[in-house]
Design a protein around this nucleic acid. Structure first.
Lengths: 208, 208
DNA sequence: ATCGTTTTAGCACGTTCATGCTATTAAGCC
DNA sequence: GGCTTAATAGCATGAACGTGCTAAAACGAT
């Protein structure tokens, strides 16, 4: 039998190499050669796991989405029971909600890198049908997360009653998108910590 | 004397060709050859006006910024006297303010195209120092516009008094960034008209 | 009509790219 | 210990790229 290498792990390593290049040199510099060098592999080796270059990009995007989704799911799973238990004060509940949504902000190096890569993919996806559907799903998913969050507040009676909930969902989703965009690409204008404050203040204004 | 061609006009036409390619095929497909074909010129002709390919990109970005800035300046110039005159009702003043800020949203085909190109440049600029300073300036400029807008409301006494003005400036800037991003790249999730409604509602909530 | 200069055209070169193939290497079962 | 097969390595090809450079063309003043 042959040399044993976990193929899934190898694929992830290749995706990580792609991320590193996007991060350091931008999406335009991504190429099989660059990925091979970054990963410390020969081009032939990479092509053993991915037949086309496009396949790498596609897989990398799916990997990225999976990682972020997993983190959000984890947080959500630990948050919802706490909120439903009703044992928290309004302020504590709000802080936990902020924590959940702030998961999307580039508040640490890992998330900063993910945000950069995410934004790089976004431009590529606009003209690449193979990637577009992944984004469509993700964007709808993030809107859904906002909706769930606000509905949860509403059910607890923690939300102002004079609000158009649907409109507030769009506003919250856009606000977080904008905060992420600015604090990722222009941290000297808007620091991630500041972005978190803005998010917190926004939620505070929605409270009763 | 030689054939008469307005060089400035030619440069703009070349920039427009670049915009068209970004729009139709994405930033990755931009090349001298592609630009030449789109503009109906020979590569040599283009290189007569721009010695390097990088120069075209740089010039195109400056052109884009100039166009958007000019539109904003025009609107601002017509808006400020009206507001200072104090002859408008609060509601009318707010609508005019929304109109001003909505200039940044992709509400018509021209602005949609500009937004797409703008976002494409943004990713490129992250790793290209020659473009980065243009963006730095523009991002600060847009924040300044938000600040001026809110200050104007504040001076007219049209703003709630319990607000942290600086925080609201960041929030407004991020909200508009996010609305633009979403309604440009994912109009099926957030239509531009809907984005305008969100913006309007946000400003309404800031009013006294 | 001729000349001088701007504009246009495009060839040639060296790089870089993705990809189709073919060898070579390494590891576990017989 | 040799066989089998996954994994690795890298060569060859053709296409696309930016750019240096030279030649042609177009046009207005003389």
């Amino acid at each position: 039998m042959p040399k044993i290498v976990d193929p899934a792990q190898r694929r992830e390593a290749i995706a990580d190499a792609l991320f590193a290049i996007v991060l350091k040199q931008g999406f335009a510099k991504v190429s099989l050669r660059a990925i091979a060098e970054e990963a410390g592999l020969a081009i032939g080796s990479i092509r053993h796991y991915f037949t086309t270059a496009e396949g790498i990009v596609r897989f990398a995007l799916e990997t990225l989405v999976a990682r972020v989704s997993a983190r959000l799911e984890t947080r959500l799973a630990s948050l919802l029971p706490q909120l439903d238990a009703g044992s928290l004060s309004g302020g504590a509940a709000k802080e936990l909600t902020v924590d959940l949504l702030a998961e999307l902000l580039p508040l640490d190096e890992v998330r900063r890198q993910e945000s950069v890569v995410w934004l790089a993919f976004e431009e590529t996806a606009r003209t690449d049908p193979a990637l577009a559907d992944v984004f469509e799903t993700s964007v709808r998913g993030s809107r859904k997360l906002m909706a769930r969050t606000l509905e949860s507040m509403s059910h607890r009676g923690a939300l102002r009653v004079d609000l158009d909930l649907d409109l507030e969902v769009d506003a919250l989703a856009a606000l977080i998108d904008g905060l992420t965009l600015r604090s990722t690409l222009h941290p000297e204008v808007l620091t991630p910590e500041r972005a978190r404050e803005v998010l917190s203040a926004h939620l505070e204004q929605l409270r009763k």
